[in-house]
Structures are given as C-alpha cells and as structure tokens.
Design a protein around this nucleic acid. Structure first.
Length: 426
RNA sequence: GCGGGGUUGCCCUAGCCUGGUAGGGGGCAGGCCUGCUAAGCCUGUGGUCUUUACGGGCCGCGCGGGUUCAAAUCCCGCACCCCGCGCCA
C-alpha cells in the first residue's frame, strides 16, 4: 500500500510510476482516489464540527445535571445534531471506503533503475552463467526422463486429485529433499534463521502480502468453513509473523529462510508453459525473507540475489538473470530480478524471483521500527523476498541439463551428501 | 469443545461494580534548578483533519454492533492470549 500523504503531496510521482508500468486502469483509479480523498477530508471537517458542537452541549448537560437544572431543551438540541451527524457519517465512511479500496489496489512505486517495458519480453538480461549443455543425442524433457525412470505418476495423480498434481517417487523424492537440504545449509551458514511456517494463513495476512486484493480470489486455495488459506509461498506466513510489531533497530535485519510446500491455483495461466513440473498446484520451496530498515533494503536486494546465483552456480546449472521491466513487475515490488534456468527445449524459464517490496507490505501489515528505545516508531520496515530454490523447477533443470544418452541423470556433486551419496539416477 | 481470567497510548498499570474531560509510573525528548560519587523539578509523548500551525477540532481503551444527551465503563456478538478440564497424532 502506498502512503496516502505521498499521493496528496506528490501525485505526479505516483502517476509517473503508474505510467511506467503501463497500467491505464490504475491511472484512472488514481484520479478517482484523489477526488474521493478530497471529498473525504472536506466532509470529515464538517463532521468534526458537528461532533464538536454535540460534545459541547453534552458537557453542558452534565453541568446542568450537577446543578439539578432542566436539561430537556439541550437534549432536544443535541438530538437534532445527532441526526445530522448520522447522515454525514455515512457519507464520510463511503468516501473513506472508496479511497481505501483504491489505495489497496495501487501498485508499489517503481525504483528508478527498473527498465521500461511492456511485458516479459522486455525484461533486461543482466548476466548469463555457464554454458548451454550440448547433447550428442536428442535430449528428453524432464517428464519423459522421470517417467522412463519410474519416478513420477501424473495420470494417477489426475485420478486422485486432478490436473497439476504429481506423485514423486524414489530418487526424485530424494532429489527434492536434497535440494531443500542443500539450500537450507547454504543459507544457515549465512546467518539466516530457519523457519518452518504454518501452511495456512488468515485473510488479513494473505491480503496484506499479496498486493492487489483483486488477485486474491484467483490466487488462493481457501479452506472450507474457515477463514484460512493455503499459502502460495512461505513469504506469506514469514511476513505476516510480524503483523503490528515494532522492531528495535538492533533487532534488524531479520533474515529468515522458510521451508514449505506452496499451493497455487494457477487460474488465468492458460496458454502459458504448462509442461510437467513447471506449473503445478503444489511444490516445495526454500524462501529467503528479510525485514530491514529503509536504508538497508537496496543492499539486501543485491545480497539476496548473490545468494540465489551462488546456489545455481554450485549446482552447475546454466542460467541467466533478468531485471524485470516495468510492465512485468508485480504490484507489491519496487524492483525485482528473476533467475531463469535453461531447459532442454532451448528456453530460459523463470525459476526464482527476487523482490524488494520496500514499505508496501509493511504498511498494510503495520510492521514498524523504532530508531531509539522508548520512542514512538520512526516508520515502516522494508521487506524483501527471494526464492532460494523451488524444488520443482530446479528438478526440471537438473533432469534436463544433466541427462545422459542412456537415460540416466547425473546428480550435482553438492547434492550427493544430501541423498545418501547417490551419484546418478538410472 | 467446556469453565475461569485477560486485551488501555512506545512499555507497564489504574479506572469498569456505581456511565459524565483516560489518571499514574517507566522510557524517550526538551527545558529549569543545582554542583560532586548525584539528585530534583517542569513540559511534552498515538492517529487524523484543519493548505502551513502559535493554535483549534475530532478520533482513539482488542474488533463489530446496541442502549444513552453522554460508553474504557452497561448490553449483545466475535477474535486473540493465558490458566484449568476434556478430546487428540
């Protein structure tokens, strides 16, 4: 959520950012918001005037009562004002509701360094690491590899659950776990605190983290008969751990590594790449999450990025880093990098995403920090989240990049200690 | 699931029975007095509106309703926390 004061004082900054995102609809909403806010403030002033008059008379009544004098006239007068207050209150609330609804839907301000662009085609490649694997045979897709090795059941999953779910078996399960253990060890060495969060959050937490609440219904799995939702990423419960908290300066930054399953409905992704494990309703992910001061967040964005890239490098996976362009940026992010890993059909595809959400989530969730002990909070913290490794997409890359002519797959050295020394599957 | 206790500003706490300006302490900030291991005193302290505020107003006691001229206080509903009991892998 943006600071309403920023919108009042510098609407052009907000407008420029929305134009850069190419979000015509939100530009219109911004103008509406400014109008609603103006009306809200005007009618609030009038309402407060009426309340003031009512309070004055009320205390006069208290005085009269003390002196045992007649209060009938005053009470009639106050009844009259009370009616006007009722009417005006309804108006004020309506204006406020309208501003709030729009405010919640406006995306974060973009950082100056975000490249201009319309969609993912305009993302800017920053680095490519490793060499494209060369095969002297026709490489298979991960789904073929895993099926041929008896490591995956998709048709049976469709019977038991539905499309987009999978049973993993034997070495593929071990690989999944090894990827998680590897990423966890790596990040714990870098002073991240390991957290297994709840796999469900309540509505306030979900809406606070997501950005535009409009996306909410499409993104979330709701638990029937409760206000609980399956998490789409550990980021959600990690961030909402700190709802309404005030951090002391010396307790920042908070560096967390979350380990969890993630659940996504993937509504509205028709036409996108769907093959095999790439887009599933459930997958496991190791997530980096940071809470810090506004001064620290841009350095941490780069630090988180280095961590992710090191993980891919240690795995030996050919990948590239792109800076997301203005049109491809999620609502909550001020700036984001994606890591795209190479797949055997010759494409780089997103396997992780690193975002600085600045104070956008913190303002919604009321997470603040204090500059000095005993003082009132100085402002909102900044939050960042970055995939360390999502097991499904990392497994795709491992299976496809390290496949052999005989159908077997060589396991990256760094993972072997975490899977009982297995060097090769198949 | 049942019973009991609780939720007050940056923190702690009083006020609730018996409705009438949210009081005290701590911390923090500023000021005053003083001068020797220091201490004392005063003022301020949340959000918001008033274009700016010397100022003024409104809101704010877990959340949402209700009663009332007036609600932290009374009534109803809900959430969360603590204790005990029950159930449970």
């Amino acid at each position: 959520m943006l600071d309403i004061n920023l919108i009042r004082e510098n609407p052009d900054i907000v407008r420029d950012s929305l134009e850069k995102r190419g979000d015509v609809e939100k530009l219109k909403m911004l103008d509406e918001l400014i109008e609603y806010d103006k009306n809200w403030r005007q009618s609030l002033t009038r309402l407060n005037d009426l309340r003031h008059r009512k309070n004055m008379i009320t205390s006069e009544i208290a005085e009269l009562k003390k002196k045992r004098k007649n209060t009938k006239e005053k009470i009639e007068e106050v009844d009259d004002i009370a009616q006007k207050i009722d009417v005006l209150t309804g108006k004020v609330e309506k204006y406020r509701e309208n501003t709030d609804n729009i405010l919640l839907r406006l995306p974060n301000l973009l950082h100056d360094s975000v490249p201009m662009g319309k969609n993912e085609k305009d993302n800017v490649e920053i680095r490519v690491w490793g060499k494209q694997p060369k095969f002297d045979f026709k490489p298979k897709s991960h789904l073929e590899i895993a099926s041929d090795l008896g490591l995956i059941e998709s048709e049976r999953a469709a019977k038991a659950v539905g499309a987009g779910f999978f049973y993993l078996k034997n070495e593929l399960v071990l690989l999944d776990l090894a990827i998680q253990r590897f990423a966890i060890s790596f990040l714990m060495k870098k002073d991240f605190t390991l957290v297994e969060p709840p796999y469900m959050v309540n509505r306030k937490a979900y809406e606070g983290m997501i950005g535009d609440p409009f996306d909410f219904a499409e993104a979330s799995y709701k638990i029937e008969d409760s206000e609980l939702y399956l998490i789409p990423t550990a980021e959600y419960p990690l961030g909402s751990m700190f709802i309404d908290e005030i951090f002391e300066l010396q307790d920042l930054p908070v560096k967390l590594v979350g380990v969890s399953a993630c659940f996504r409905r993937e509504v509205g992704t028709h036409g996108k790449y769907m093959k095999g494990l790439f887009r599933t309703h459930q997958f496991n992910k190791i997530e980096q999450f940071i809470v810090c001061t506004p001064e620290q967040s841009w350095d941490f964005l780069e630090e988180l990025q280095r961590n992710s890239e090191e993980l891919y490098q240690e795995l030996g996976l050919h990948h590239r880093v792109v800076s997301l362009c203005s049109g491809d940026m999620t609502a909550k992010a001020a700036k984001a990098y994606d890591i795209e890993v190479w797949m055997a059909d010759g494409e780089f595809r997103e396997s992780g995403s690193n975002s600085n959400c600045t104070d956008y989530q913190a303002r919604r969730l009321n997470i603040r920090f204090r500059e000095k002990l005993g003082q009132a909070p100085a402002g909102f913290v900044h939050t960042l989240n970055n995939t360390a490794l999502a097991t499904s997409r990392t497994m795709i890359a491992i299976l496809e990049q390290f496949q052999q002519r005989d159908g077997s797959v060589v396991i990256p050295k760094v993972l072997r200690p975490f899977m009982g020394g297995i060097e090769r599957i198949g």
